[in-house]
Design a protein around this nucleic acid. Structure first.
Lengths: 232, 232
DNA sequence: CCAAAAGTGTTAAAGTTACACCCATGT
DNA sequence: ACATGGGTGTAACTTTAACACTTTTGG
């Protein structure tokens, strides 16, 4: 090991890209920080995350973060990528913020990012300490702290890739009962392509793990859509 | 950020899984450490890697490590995954080794692993400092330091996945001139399946980026195989 | 002439894509 | 009755998988 590595220990944090789907569009859960920094500063929004605790595995930290901001207990998590550029912490606003939060001089933070998928409901965005959590559509995000916009973009590309191979994972984001159109819109959002309605019905909706229910939409001004559920 | 995170900064290292192919089997480049620990100790072999330097990006560190052990300048590298379990450094032999090398008490090391593919030749395994580098077949590896056996396994699975989507990346591991059988053996090693000779010839060997040469094997006791080269 | 590996096409099956009309409901 | 989105089948095309014999060379 080389000499100039001695005694250099960057901070290590875990940040989570928690994605959900509201039936219309893909959403990401962001933390809005409390009072330390004026509200109007653009980078008051960030991914949920924190420094790694002593004796805590990376996956454990991700699970803990996700559970604490969403209340969901065994969420699907997948480690995605580490970000360690020294310039990550170069924005003065981010530095101010960090030093406020960590109460020490910050040289540099290596972050391990995680992807998590979940259903959006009334419980999946709950205040935690000083922070409030809110779902934002991934199209048209505001500027976020650090390189978090980049992390989200990279993670969406990863989601696209993974969903191509295991489309079942998308059910993590669907409500317990859903219509064919909702599931199709999710596939479309993830892949960025518009899908043929008939082919989608044939190829996806009659997979053995998609169970049609004897329930239909209510009070819609057009033919009511059938509900389905997912059998794991 | 939580209180008990304060002042906890694990070491951060970068380890590289450098894979090559000798025409017969997949190989991984391992470092054999020098004198500090008796030769016969099983975990004298490890992945090439080191602690992260101050002001060095993760990708930079990986490139530097790979270049320094193989001499290759712009190698293909891809970040693969972070490993941060506190139990990574629990083996007493590994602890002894580390404290020898780093000259300080080691609590814990979070490592970022990288995948790199390259051609095996006389220059791609060269001694560096106290360490010697050697290619080992990935089947039948000895026990390595830390969780490096696990890292290699995980990386091979990733290689399998990536090669399924972009088979061109495998050319990084092929010699400049190669036969159809060599390329097929590489595909077989990566996928773990045996491939049909005729289908392989049809589907792979007459891609536009594979150029047949007017050269054939010499002095083989069977019909001589044609050589091909890869056009990027 | 024997052993060993190289080289070469066809056919069936599966999967993917393209495409248009009628249905149910609320206003 | 009309506007809105829901639901359904077929045919062309593309991709993948299965399969066996002849060629070249050295010993």
């Amino acid at each position: 090991m080389d000499q100039d590595a001695l005694n250099f220990d960057p901070h290590v944090s875990v940040d989570c890209v928690i994605l959900g789907f509201d039936g219309e569009s893909l959403q990401v859960l962001l933390s809005r920080r409390g009072n330390e920094v004026p509200e109007e500063q653009y980078n008051n929004l960030k991914l949920p995350g924190r420094l790694l605790h002593t004796d805590e595995d990376l996956d454990e930290a991700a699970l803990d973060i996700i559970t604490s901001v969403t209340g969901k207990h065994h969420p699907l998590v997948k480690q995605f990528r580490a970000y360690g550029s020294p310039s990550r912490t170069s924005n003065p606003k981010d530095v101010l913020w960090l030093e406020n939060a960590i109460k020490q001089k910050i040289g540099r933070i290596v972050t391990i990012s995680y992807l998590s998928l979940m259903r959006i409901n009334s419980r999946t965005a709950r205040p935690k300490d000083n922070d409030a959590q809110l779902w934002y559509p991934v199209q048209d995000l505001p500027s976020l702290a650090f390189d978090h916009n980049q992390i989200i973009q990279d993670t969406l590309n990863e989601l696209y890739r993974m969903a191509g191979q295991q489309p079942q994972m998308l059910f993590e984001m669907m409500p317990a009962k859903f219509t064919a159109a909702q599931l199709r819109r999710l596939h479309e959002q993830v892949s960025g392509k518009t899908l043929d309605v008939r082919n989608f019905a044939k190829l996806v909706m009659n997979k053995p793990y998609i169970i049609p229910l004897n329930e239909w939409e209510q009070n819609v001004s057009h033919r009511a859509a059938r509900f389905y559920r997912f059998k794991p």
